[in-house]
Design a binder for these strands. Structure first.
Lengths: 365, 365
DNA sequence: CTGAAAGCGCTTACAG
DNA sequence: CTGAAAGCGCTTACAG
């Protein structure tokens, strides 16, 4: 019996074409002397099978090196165990933070027995219909969500299960996970105020395309800051800045021009944050000695990629990817739709760019 | 006729479950009064069909909103049009450069009618067997390839078409695309020498795990530098450095200690490059006034993320991803295996960290 | 140019 | 506990 195995291998080997003509359930059933249905039951643990039969089948599977064909399974069961991650590649190039969604989403899917297809697309309804119409994917995850995201309606119409990493304008009916931008801004302002800062500037990334004007994180952070600034009696003006180091370096001048008393800067633009620090230094101001800077929704990698290392509100990229995938798969498997928090906080990580407000005013008084 | 369409829609709508019970070829065939085979012929353009019949079928498809089911097609044709990108998530976190492979690979696949599944895995043969055994993917692309990559043998054994972004120790029998590290080092040294630099240091990223000791780009760059350094009569010692800004800042001291005459530094460690510049500044040296620094295999995004902007040998990430996918799909479709260059150059981009060697020696003489 | 039919490799009621 | 059989929605020789 044992010696027959290698010989089987070799025979098939020599007959192989581009792809291995794989061992099928029928082969296993024949070898174990049972029906194909019974094999299916033990492979999927869908029905009780007597220990003896199970044993025979498992042996046969092992000997033949059986693996269930995912495509046939998908067709018969009407579940492909594939989910698509739609990422708007062209309209919205991936930043440091977004990348973490992707890898953690892929890992989570893999752990739960699913595959993650990376589907590059525009903010376009037709492309979504194209995708869901193929019947390849069980569900879809959207990232870089816009307030009025054109990808959502076709998903609803086609009755495709989906979840968002991000939120539309009114996401109450949609499965989603997102950063809690309100809390992020509240915590940020509270932190700076607790350090004695009262003259605070807010710098935010400028949309690089029309689409991005509608981009959730920016829109929500803007709104939150205006609200919170009023609560604290702070200047609620926003300063826009391109997403580059150089732009940040220049915008530092604008910040000081607008209010020379500024002692704290909140930055929602991780690519410009170090530039702002440099721009302040250019103008003879030290960070955090004269001015504190807190970079919002920023990845640790980015925050530590220069010195002084940025104090940040860490973006929970890994967790967002994981939660979105878990929730979607739960739903696909009719599991409990978890009552977990859908809005995750950014955690304050104090590094080297924030400190007590300078006592300048006190000295004057 | 026209009014019948919405009513059909509605009927199906109300009967829909989690997923749309889609329009099938049978439905189209019935409506057009032809056989299902003929529908298949026009959908796939696999056989000539008379204009009249074709017309009827196309109308029926349009009216019913038909889209061919990808899973059934895959099972029947034995081609899923899915390719897997294996990325070693845990053992080798994605850096700026690697990310570009992923997105450009996904885009290319999509353009060519394929799907790209992101498959996180370790450097492990069994996981690869697991993947290919499922019969889900037509082909596989490996990234972050090791010199003796354990993922290669199971791919060969299972006869799965695959391509590498990177190279094993002897890649001559394998489809691959990679950076031409020899040329990268030659061009880099030639460039610095042409600027008058003769005292050159070479800083390279330290492996953060055992696996990475075997990592192709590092191993090949090391070997190339030792060779080229000998050709030019330069010091061929290598200085290892962790992949962080802080480590770079410290290693600057080591560079100067080893050879106080150093005027040029080649860095194969994009995360440490700015740190080295800062470390040189700490020690009273200006870049590029006193010392020039060229960052190898670096993405433009990284190179411009601080100032002075790094002079770099740009890593052709986008092109690598595209070429790898194109070559694999070509092979899957029995197209011409293109005789294109498999090794791409890094393009020299002079920014702000390189310049003529200081004339110190000339003054002394 | 078109069709009838087998088959891709599974899952899943339905019987027994 | 196990099996016979229909069916998932296509593709593809093979006839005509």
């Amino acid at each position: 019996l044992l010696t027959s195995i290698p010989s089987i291998r070799c025979q098939t080997c020599s007959m192989r074409d581009a792809k291995t003509s794989a061992v099928t359930m029928q082969n296993v059933a024949d070898r174990a002397g049972v029906s194909i249905a019974t094999v299916s039951f033990v492979v999927n643990s869908t029905k009780n099978v007597s220990p003896k039969t199970r044993e025979r089948i498992e042996t046969a599977m092992r000997e033949l090196g059986f693996r269930r064909n995912a495509v046939a399974r998908a067709l018969a069961s009407r579940r492909s165990h594939i989910i698509a991650l739609l990422f708007p590649a062209l309209d919205h190039p991936l930043e440091t933070t977004s990348i973490r969604f992707v890898t953690s989403a892929a890992e989570t899917a893999s752990e739960l027995g699913y595959h993650l297809v990376l589907w590059p697309s525009h903010y376009d309804a037709e492309e979504v219909r194209e995708l869901t119409g193929q019947g390849l994917v069980d569900g879809v995850i959207l990232m870089e969500v816009l307030l009025d995201d054109p990808r959502v309606p076709p998903l609803i119409e086609s009755n495709t299960p989906f979840g968002l990493i991000g939120r539309t304008r009114d996401p109450s009916q949609l499965a989603h996970v997102d950063i809690d931008f309100d809390k992020m801004v509240e915590d940020s302002v509270a932190y700076l105020v607790s350090l004695g800062h009262h003259e605070i500037a807010f710098v935010i990334g400028r949309a690089t395309s029309d689409m991005q004007r509608d981009y959730g994180p920016v829109a929500r952070t803007e709104a939150a800051y205006i609200r919170v600034a009023h609560e604290y009696g702070l200047d609620s003006d926003l300063i826009y800045c391109d997403k580059t180091f150089v732009a940040g370096r220049e915008v530092a001048g604008q910040v000081l021009e607008r209010n020379p008393q500024t002692t704290g800067i909140l930055v929602m633009n991780e690519l410009a944050a170090f530039g702002i620090v440099a721009g302040l230094n250019d103008r003879g101001l030290s960070v955090p000695g004269d001015i504190s800077l807190l970079s919002l929704s920023t990845s640790p990698t980015m925050g530590t990629s220069y010195q002084p290392e940025l104090s940040t509100m860490d973006s929970p990229g890994i967790e967002l990817g994981r939660l979105a995938v878990e929730a979607l798969i739960n739903r696909l498997e009719n599991g409990p739709v978890p009552d977990e928090p859908q809005l995750l906080p950014c955690i304050l990580t104090v590094r080297e760019t924030t400190g007590p407000a300078p006592t300048r005013l006190a000295v004057e008084g």
